[in-house]
């Protein structure tokens, strides 16, 4: 019995074909288009990008266990890897927690269970992407830099952060002088919220002036190494700057240093997060492998 081709029958078959065809086209042609242009920074222990994308189940368990809550799940703007975990170091960097809970939480091994320590996490590599703004190269002290950018009216929160960095670096006498001036018994880290709360414009001006005279201002910024979670591995080494930097500021008579990233850097991104300059002078290149300096010169030549 031959079935007459009615309009309904025709539309039914066409819509079926369109849906099936659409699925095939999406699968074959859509995949390369949807892939993210820039490589995202993955959590520690991620397999190479293609295998990682294929073996991540997109459950978000790494995100759930992350103590500093820095892992985010990719959305449609991050290309193909919808639901895959990534980290934006500037918004919060991986601190390479002890035991790497994110790796332990991964049910599929997309974060490789072979690694157990932060120093084995090959996430990427720190690169001095803006050497011209780097404070160490200019021979500037980071606390002075931050205080010079802090105004009393607008940046009290920033002041708390700066003081947190400052207090451990002060000598005993300097601490005594500041606490006497501020009317505090003892200058400790726990006293910082109170200092910020009781700050007046006059006191603030005095503090700025006094800090410029302290002992610690005689060294240039070393925040990237000081904050590094695996600083004992020496991922960043400071070398004396050979040629004079024309952009060096008038503020100092401090030796100019150049941070050089070593093989042990895993690319966690804390240096990028903590770098005092905006935008950060040191950034993470995801998935990048370390190359010796000599090799780099050769490649460039």
């Amino acid at each position: 019995m031959k079935k007459a081709i009615t309009r309904r029958f025709f539309f039914k078959k066409t819509s079926t074909a369109v849906i099936a065809g659409g699925a095939v086209v999406y699968g074959v042609a859509g995949v390369p288009l949807l892939k993210s242009k820039e490589l995202l920074l993955r959590p520690p222990g991620a397999l190479d990008e293609d295998t990682f994308l294929a073996s991540c189940i997109k459950c978000g368990q790494c995100l759930q266990v992350c103590p500093p809550q820095v892992i985010d799940l990719a959305g449609i703007s991050q290309g193909l890897g919808i639901g895959t975990p990534f980290i934006v170091p500037q918004q919060g960097a991986c601190i390479l927690c002890k035991g790497l809970p994110c790796v332990l939480a991964c049910p599929t091994g997309a974060l490789d269970h072979q690694i157990s320590e932060g120093k084995e996490a090959a996430m990427g590599l720190a690169v001095l992407s803006k050497p011209e703004t780097c404070l160490a190269r200019k021979g500037e002290n980071d606390i002075l830099y931050e205080l010079s950018r802090t105004t009393f009216e607008t940046r009290l929160q920033a002041l708390a952060e700066t003081l947190t960095k400052l207090v451990p670096r002060l000598t005993f006498d300097e601490k005594k002088t500041i606490s006497a001036e501020l009317g505090l018994g003892n200058l400790e880290l726990s006293g910082i919220p109170r200092i910020v709360a009781e700050m007046t414009p006059e006191l603030f001006a005095w503090l700025k002036k006094y800090v410029a005279e302290t002992e610690q201002t005689k060294t240039a910024c070393r925040i990237c190494l000081q904050t590094c979670p695996i600083s004992s591995e020496q991922p960043i080494v400071f070398q004396a700057e050979k040629e004079a930097n024309p952009e060096s500021s008038k503020l100092n008579s401090v030796e100019k240093m150049r941070p050089v990233v070593q093989r042990t850097c895993v690319g966690c991104g804390v240096c990028e997060e903590k770098c005092p300059t905006t935008p950060p002078s040191i950034t993470i290149v995801s998935r990048k492998k370390w190359q010796p300096q000599a090799l780099k010169v050769k490649v460039q030549a």
Binding site: V31, K58, L80
Partner: peptide
């Protein structure tokens, strides 16, 4: 089949 050939879990996107 698509995930076997493309090397990516295509369906998980949608």
């Amino acid at each position: 089949l698509l995930s076997a050939f493309s090397g990516y879990t295509i369906f998980e996107v949608i």
